[in-house]
Amino acid sequence: HNLTITQGKLFFHYNPKLCLSEIHKMEEVSGTKGRQERNDIALKTNGDQASCENELLKFSYIRTSFDKILLRWEPYWPPDFRDLLGFMLFYKEAPYQNVTEFDGQDACGSNSWTVVDIDPPLRSNDPKSQNHPGWLMRGLKPWTQYAIFVKTLVTFSDERRTYGAKSDIIYVQTDATNPSVPLDPISVSNSSSQIILKWKPPSDPNGNITHYLVFWERQAEDSELFELDYCLKGLKLPSRTWSPPFESEDSQKHNQSEYEDSAGECCSCPKTDSQILKELEESSFRKTFEDYLHNVVFVPRKTSSGTGAEDPRPSRKRRSLGDVGNVTVAVPTVAAFPNTSSTSVPTSPEEHRPFEKVVNKESLVISGLRHFTGYRIELQACNQDTPEERCSVAAYVSARTMPEAKADDIVGPVTHEIFENNVVHLMWQEPKEPNGLIVLYEVSYRRYGDEELHLCVSRKHFALERGCRLRGLSPGNYSVRIRATSLAGNGSWTEPTYFYVTDYLDVPSNIA
Rank of each mutant, 00 (worst) to 15 (best):
255 N>Q: 13
475 P>Q: 10
321 L>R: 12
300 P>I: 05
343 T>E: 12
319 R>Q: 07
303 T>P: 13
218 R>P: 13
440 L>R: 07
240 R>H: 06
377 I>A: 05
302 K>H: 14
436 G>F: 06
443 V>A: 03
305 S>W: 12
275 Q>I: 11
237 L>A: 14
305 S>K: 12
237 L>W: 11
453 L>A: 02
284 S>I: 01
282 E>V: 08
242 W>C: 03
370 R>A: 13
345 V>C: 06
300 P>R: 11
361 K>F: 12
387 P>T: 14
473 L>D: 00
375 Y>H: 05
308 G>R: 07
367 S>G: 09
380 Q>M: 05
359 V>N: 10
272 T>Q: 05
250 D>Q: 09
326 N>W: 03
505 L>V: 09
332 P>E: 14
368 G>P: 08
455 L>W: 05
385 D>Q: 08
422 N>C: 06
408 D>Y: 01
405 A>S: 11
384 Q>I: 07
394 A>T: 11
222 D>E: 04
334 V>H: 09
277 L>C: 03
406 K>Q: 13
410 I>L: 09
275 Q>E: 09
435 N>A: 02
286 R>E: 14
425 H>E: 14
251 S>K: 13
506 D>F: 11
492 S>Y: 03
401 T>Y: 00
246 F>N: 14
354 P>L: 11
431 P>A: 10
363 S>P: 05
307 T>F: 06
286 R>M: 07
461 H>W: 10
229 D>Q: 06
403 P>K: 11
300 P>V: 04
288 T>S: 09
387 P>Y: 14
372 F>D: 04
353 R>H: 07
410 I>S: 08
390 R>N: 13
428 W>F: 05
280 L>F: 10
303 T>H: 11
350 E>W: 04
467 G>N: 02
249 E>I: 06
481 R>C: 04
258 E>F: 13
306 G>I: 13
233 K>A: 13
320 S>L: 10
503 D>W: 14
495 E>Q: 07
214 V>L: 07
381 A>K: 15
388 E>Q: 14
264 G>A: 15
330 A>V: 08
427 M>D: 04
369 L>S: 01
284 S>H: 14
490 N>I: 02
396 Y>V: 05
231 C>F: 03
500 Y>D: 08
301 R>E: 04
460 K>V: 12
335 A>T: 11
418 I>F: 11
287 K>C: 09
356 E>A: 13
327 V>N: 06
446 R>P: 00
353 R>D: 14
292 Y>G: 03
350 E>K: 04
207 G>E: 02
274 S>P: 11
228 L>R: 10
245 P>W: 11
216 W>A: 06
357 K>F: 14
335 A>D: 15
463 A>H: 08
332 P>H: 10
353 R>L: 13
407 A>W: 08
234 G>C: 15
481 R>N: 05
309 A>E: 13
389 E>A: 07
291 D>H: 10
284 S>K: 13
401 T>R: 00
287 K>N: 10
417 E>L: 09
295 N>F: 13
397 V>N: 11
366 I>E: 00
203 S>P: 04
487 L>D: 07
427 M>V: 09
473 L>P: 02
333 T>D: 12
327 V>C: 15
298 F>G: 05
328 T>C: 05
234 G>W: 07
212 Y>Q: 00
255 N>H: 05
232 L>H: 11
292 Y>S: 10
249 E>R: 07
265 E>I: 09
237 L>I: 05
243 S>W: 08
281 E>M: 04
403 P>H: 02
335 A>G: 07
484 A>G: 04
452 E>V: 07
462 F>G: 02
436 G>W: 02
370 R>S: 13
414 V>R: 01
398 S>T: 12
429 Q>F: 13
203 S>E: 11
209 I>T: 14
356 E>K: 15
250 D>I: 15
390 R>F: 05
329 V>F: 05
361 K>P: 10
475 P>I: 08
479 S>Q: 04
220 A>V: 12
439 V>L: 10
324 V>T: 07
434 P>V: 10
458 S>I: 05
301 R>C: 12
342 S>D: 05
395 A>V: 08
292 Y>A: 05
455 L>K: 04
389 E>V: 09
510 N>R: 14
266 C>N: 11
328 T>L: 09
440 L>H: 13
399 A>R: 05
416 H>A: 05
212 Y>T: 09
279 E>V: 06
454 H>L: 10
406 K>G: 12
442 E>R: 09
284 S>G: 12
482 I>D: 01
462 F>K: 08
351 E>V: 10
461 H>G: 09
208 N>L: 07
